[in-house]
Simulated assay, not measured.
Amino acid sequence: MSAPPGGPRRRLDEDRRRAQIITAAVEVLDEVGYGAATLTRIADCAAVSKGLIWHYFTGKDDLMTAVAESTLTTLTDGIADGLDRTAPVPDVLRSALRGAADLSRTHRKELNALYRIVHNLHGPDGTPKMTLAFYETTYQAQENLFRRGQVEGSLRDFDTRVMAVTYQGAVDMMLGYLNEHPETEPRAYADALADLLLNGIERS
Rank of each mutant, 00 (worst) to 15 (best):
Y189P: 05
M174S: 07
G123T: 11
P124D: 09
K109D: 08
K129H: 06
L198Q: 09
G153M: 13
A190I: 06
T131E: 10
A113Y: 01
P182D: 09
E185F: 11
R148G: 07
L145V: 02
D191A: 08
P186Y: 08
G153Y: 11
E180M: 13
Y177A: 13
H122A: 12
L178D: 12
E136T: 14
A192E: 14
D195R: 14
A192M: 12
E185I: 11
H122G: 01
R156W: 00
A190K: 03
T137Y: 10
F134T: 08
H107D: 07
P124Q: 14
A170P: 02
H122V: 06
A141N: 10
K129A: 08
G123M: 04
L132V: 12
D159M: 05
V118R: 01
V171R: 04
N144P: 00
G169F: 00
V171K: 04
A194I: 10
L193T: 05
K129M: 15
D172L: 08
E110A: 07
A133P: 00
T138V: 15
L193S: 01
V162H: 12
G153H: 09
Y189H: 08
R156H: 01
D191F: 11
E185C: 12
Y139M: 05
A190V: 09
M174V: 07
R161T: 04
D125N: 07
S104Y: 09
Y167K: 03
A190C: 05
L145Q: 06
R161I: 05
R116A: 09
E185M: 09
S104W: 09
V118T: 02
T138I: 12
E183I: 12
T106R: 05
R187A: 08
T160K: 03
A164L: 03
N179K: 12
M163H: 05
Y167D: 01
